[in-house]
Amino acid sequence: MSTVKEAVEVAVPVRTAYNQWTQFAEFPNFMEGVEEVTQIDDTHNHWTTKISGVRREFDTEIVDQLADERIAWRTIGGDTNQRGMVHFQSLDEVHTRVELVMDVESSGPAEKAADMLGMLDRRVKGDMRRFKEFIESRGDESGSWRGRVTPG
Results as ranks from 00 to 15, higher is better:
residue 8 V to C: 01
residue 8 V to R: 04
residue 9 E to Y: 07
residue 10 V to R: 00
residue 10 V to M: 02
residue 11 A to K: 02
residue 12 V to Q: 00
residue 13 P to L: 02
residue 14 V to P: 00
residue 14 V to F: 02
residue 14 V to M: 04
residue 15 R to D: 05
residue 15 R to K: 14
residue 18 Y to S: 00
residue 19 N to D: 11
residue 20 Q to T: 04
residue 20 Q to I: 07
residue 21 W to R: 01
residue 22 T to Y: 07
residue 22 T to G: 01
residue 24 F to M: 10
residue 25 A to Y: 14
residue 26 E to I: 08
residue 27 F to Y: 15
residue 27 F to A: 13
residue 28 P to R: 06
residue 32 E to I: 15
residue 32 E to W: 12
residue 33 G to E: 08
residue 33 G to L: 08
residue 36 E to T: 09
residue 36 E to A: 15
residue 38 T to Q: 11
residue 39 Q to V: 10
residue 39 Q to R: 15
residue 41 D to K: 11
residue 42 D to C: 07
residue 42 D to S: 14
residue 43 T to I: 12
residue 44 H to N: 12
residue 44 H to G: 01
residue 44 H to F: 04
residue 45 N to P: 11
residue 45 N to I: 08
residue 45 N to E: 12
residue 47 W to D: 00
residue 47 W to Y: 08
residue 49 T to K: 04
residue 49 T to Q: 04
residue 50 K to R: 15
residue 51 I to S: 12
residue 54 V to C: 01
residue 55 R to Q: 10
residue 57 E to M: 10
residue 58 F to V: 06
residue 58 F to D: 02
residue 58 F to K: 03
residue 59 D to N: 10
residue 59 D to E: 09
residue 60 T to V: 08
residue 60 T to H: 13
residue 63 V to K: 07
residue 63 V to D: 09
residue 67 A to W: 08
residue 68 D to R: 01
residue 68 D to Q: 01
residue 71 I to Q: 05
residue 71 I to D: 04
residue 72 A to R: 14
residue 73 W to C: 12
residue 74 R to I: 07
residue 76 I to C: 00
residue 77 G to C: 02
residue 77 G to N: 11
residue 77 G to L: 09
residue 78 G to A: 06
residue 79 D to W: 13
residue 79 D to Q: 06
residue 80 T to I: 12
residue 80 T to E: 01
residue 81 N to E: 11
residue 81 N to A: 04
residue 82 Q to D: 06
residue 84 G to N: 13
residue 85 M to W: 10
residue 85 M to P: 05
residue 86 V to N: 05
residue 88 F to V: 03
residue 89 Q to E: 08
residue 90 S to L: 07
residue 91 L to P: 09
residue 92 D to P: 07
residue 93 E to L: 07
residue 93 E to K: 10
residue 93 E to V: 03
residue 94 V to I: 11
residue 94 V to F: 02
residue 96 T to R: 01
residue 97 R to I: 03
residue 98 V to W: 07
residue 98 V to D: 04
residue 99 E to N: 10
residue 99 E to H: 12
residue 101 V to D: 09
residue 101 V to N: 14
residue 103 D to R: 14
residue 103 D to L: 01
